[in-house]
Design a protein around this nucleic acid. Structure first.
Length: 402
DNA sequence: CTTCCACAGGAACCAGCGGACC
DNA sequence: GGTCCGCTGGTTCCTGTGGAAG
């Protein structure tokens, strides 16, 4: 295919009307199947319209269950109302994603920025930064919403110190008020929170259930209308994307990603329509990317065990713990690395199972013992790709090709 | 019915490390 | 600047077990 052809295809493709509508951070005008959550959150936050400080809220839910979207949506509404109905109190919203801003300093730095308080992005102590933040905030009759998305990252990296201070800030303020909204998809998160923070932060709690397959289909249909040209989507695509995304739990982000990537593949292939096959390819592509990422970040022994499982599977129909362990040991010897015990390897195989890199299930072979049979759950391509930047390891795969 | 394989997986313990605390 | 503490990832030792073979 020549470059002219590629560009021509791109230009003539009539697939996406507006791709942005499928991006994970896009907040739509209408959020299907989250009415209950929207209402509940609105009820909690509504006092803000009259300038009264709402309770702090803590929102839980698995990834892709609409936590961020609902929060942004409700706050946007409340902001518009507040602008029209409450002149004396200024309502502000500071949205911070703690995955990126995961230190006390960066959170406070961002908060200062929201208040247009100029502070150096390094150099001050957090205590000083906090003082300046309070100063800037308290100058006016502000009502500030601090949205801490993925707040578990902040706590994991920097502890709950800022959180503690933020939740206790109100008595120190004369004019302003602060209300905190914490969002997390780590359901065990509260366990490692200081109980004092827990009680103030969790004045109100909201739990978001995963979407069902049907609900995902509705969401996709709604977005697809805005994102694709009419008639471009084959009717089987949306149900398929919904089903694929619902395999683990109803994750709307995944579902939307699938739909978007399916569209992109169709576009690349120069197809006038997005077909079922494109969705399947999209699924494979996304899975592969995820697997590659996981493999890349694995410690050396875990990588070796994955390779061992792959090698055993290549010469036999099924791999057992014992065989994998033997192969793993010979790999270790080749690389002159100390080997782990079988006990640990058994655990690592379980970890790999959890990560979706292998499928392991325990079976009893009667007289011939009880073991796990292990299958690789990822493609050879993904494995090679994941090991690409470690030359020693990737040659192992090729070297042993008997 | 018993035996016995080839591990599973629990319990206790240990080394190393970062962070709090004096 | 030592020390204490909790956590992670590892080891050692151990008991438990499903079911084909005998």
């Amino acid at each position: 295919m020549s470059i002219d052809e590629i560009i021509y295809r791109m230009l003539s493709a009539r697939i996406f009307k507006n791709r942005e509508k499928l991006r994970p951070d896009y907040v739509p005008e209408y959020l299907p199947h989250r009415e209950a959550e929207i209402n509940k959150l609105a009820e909690i936050l509504a006092p803000a319209v009259r300038g009264v400080r709402p309770s702090n809220v803590f929102i839980y839910g698995l990834p892709g269950t609409g936590k961020t979207a609902v929060t942004k949506y409700v706050l946007r509404k409340i902001e518009t109302y507040a602008r029209n109905y409450s002149q004396d109190v200024k309502l502000k919203v500071a949205y911070i994603n703690c995955r990126n801003e995961n230190t006390s300093y960066r959170v406070l730095f961002n908060l200062c920025n929201y208040l247009n308080e100029r502070v150096p992005f390094t150099g001050l102590s957090t205590a000083e930064l906090f003082r300046r933040f309070i100063g800037a905030l308290d100058k006016e009759k502000n009502l500030l919403f601090v949205v801490l998305d993925e707040v578990d990252f902040l706590v994991k990296v920097s502890g709950d110190d800022v959180l503690y201070k933020l939740t206790r800030i109100n008595p120190d303020l004369h004019n302003a008020k602060v209300s905190i909204i914490g969002i997390t998809n780590d359901l065990k998160f509260v366990e490692y929170l200081d109980p004092r923070v827990k009680s103030t932060l969790g004045e109100e709690e909201l739990v978001f259930r995963p979407y069902t397959t049907e609900e995902l289909a509705d969401i996709l249909a709604d977005r697809a209308k805005q994102a694709f040209y009419e008639g471009v989507l084959d009717e089987a695509v949306i149900p398929l994307c919904a089903t694929l995304a619902a395999r683990e739990h109803g994750d709307a982000r995944r579902a939307l990603d699938l739909l978007r990537v399916a569209g992109e593949i169709a576009e690349r292939e120069g197809s006038p329509k997005v077909l079922e096959d494109h969705a399947r390819k999209a699924y494979r592509e996304i899975e592969k990317d995820r697997a590659v990422e996981v493999i890349r970040s694995m410690p050396i022994h875990t990588k070796l065990i994955t390779i061992a499982a792959y090698l055993v599977r290549r010469r036999k129909s099924e791999a057992t713990t014992g065989e994998i362990y033997e192969t793993y040991r010979s790999l270790c010897k080749k690389l002159m690395i100390d080997e782990l015990t079988q006990r640990r390897v058994s655990d690592i195989i379980n970890e790999l199972d959890m990560l979706g890199i292998v499928n392991a299930k325990v079976v009893s072979k009667g007289r011939y013992g009880r073991t796990k049979i292990v299958n690789l759950a990822i493609s050879e391509k993904a494995l090679v790709e994941g090991l690409k930047n470690d030359l020693r390891l990737s040659t192992l795969i090729l070297a042993d090709s008997i």
